[in-house]
């Protein structure tokens, strides 16, 4: 049995990645286990200039989930290239995907251009779905025309595998997915966090300084699964990376069955730092038990009822065949 899987032309040693913003630049968790065992590391979002992020409080725990509104605090592209790439370059097996966050199309393009010749970088994930920034981010990811513009422009300056990270905060995810793929996205990762809030009834104030934040963790997994299923049915040839509450290998298997070729582990890193390793091993055992030759044999194998016509049309954005 092989554990490798392809995301377009990018070959991962296993289908388990770690999600942007939950894993720094890899070094931190390498103190606890060899992160070179991962399929891929997706870096914390990198912006062109350093960003100070949002005021505190930035996080709040909710039922089976958490809200965050970090606001993309990061060291910026210069410091990333200088300080963070040496470690990433030392990884032999795990792929490195840089997550890029711009405030304008020009910034996304400039960021992608600067990563093009960096050998540590195996691929790009475009963050057009951060719900916690004033400019950029989600602004692009909720509008198919803007999605097409930013992805198309970035495509022109990079030959690296280009993954576009989608926001769930839309009515028709397939429309956005199609817009990204039509202009050259190699793969899609979904979902980013769900825009949400929580209230302190003692003080009558929001729990998060910026009032709203992004919900992540097991609470969002069913939403993420539904969206992966929808996009996979509409665009069966496009490699998908499932994100949203992946905590155990069983969660990862669910995502693969719905059509994801790989998963990203996010919030679970905080709860159980070794969760990605346990998922890798658990998935591998499961494939063996099922006598499958590779994880690809699970992808999209969800057994749907014959008469199922897809999610309601207003949500799917797809015309049904009569």
């Amino acid at each position: 049995m092989k554990t490798e899987i392809f995301i377009g032309k990018l070959k991962l040693q296993n289908p388990v990645m770690v999600a942007s913003g939950t894993f720094g630049y890899g070094e931190e968790y390498n103190r606890l286990y060899p992160v070179d065992r991962l399929g891929a590391i997706v870096t914390k979002s990198i912006s062109l200039k350093p960003r100070s992020g949002n005021p505190a409080p930035r996080i709040y725990e909710t039922a089976s989930g958490m809200l965050n509104a970090i606001g993309l605090q990061n060291v910026g592209a210069d410091a990333f290239l200088k300080e963070k790439t040496p470690f990433l370059n030392s990884l032999k097996k795990a792929k490195v995907i840089v997550n890029l966050a711009g405030e304008s199309i020009e910034e996304y393009v400039e960021l992608a251009r600067r990563m093009e010749r960096v050998s540590a970088v195996d691929g790009i994930e475009l963050n057009i779905s951060c719900p916690n920034c004033e400019r950029g981010g989600i602004e692009f990811g909720v509008d198919p025309a803007l999605t097409a513009q930013v992805v198309g422009r970035v495509r022109k300056v990079t030959r690296k595998p280009l993954i576009v990270k989608l926001s769930p905060n839309v009515t028709q995810i397939v429309t956005i997915a199609r817009a990204a793929v039509d202009v050259g996205a190699d793969a899609l990762s979904l979902i980013n966090t769900v825009l949400a809030t929580a209230v302190d009834i003692r003080t009558w104030k929001p729990r998060i300084a910026t009032v709203t934040g992004g919900l992540s963790g097991p609470a969002v997994k069913p939403i993420a699964l539904r969206m992966v299923l929808q996009v996979h049915r509409a665009l069966p040839k496009v490699p998908l990376i499932g994100i949203g509450g992946v905590t155990t290998w069983e969660d990862a298997a669910e995502f693969l069955l719905c059509g994801a070729s790989a998963v990203q582990v996010g919030t679970a890193n905080y709860v159980n730092p070794k969760a990605p390793l346990q998922i890798i091993d658990g998935l591998s055992r499961y494939l063996q038990e099922k006598k499958l030759k590779s994880p690809a044999e699970l992808v999209g194998k969800l057994q749907l009822p014959g008469q199922w016509r897809g999610v309601p049309q207003v949500i799917s954005g797809e015309r049904r065949k009569k």
């Binding site: 350093p50 992020g53 005021p55 505190a56 996080i59 958490m66 919030t267 905080y270």
Partner: peptide
């Protein structure tokens, strides 16, 4: 502070300091 990872990656448990200029990361 309320903490997420406690490993220094999530940037959730921050406090504002005046030793770095406003706007600095």
């Amino acid at each position: 502070e309320r903490m997420g990872c406690a490993m220094g990656v999530c940037m959730g448990c921050v406090v504002e300091v005046n030793s770095a200029p406003a706007g600095s990361h």
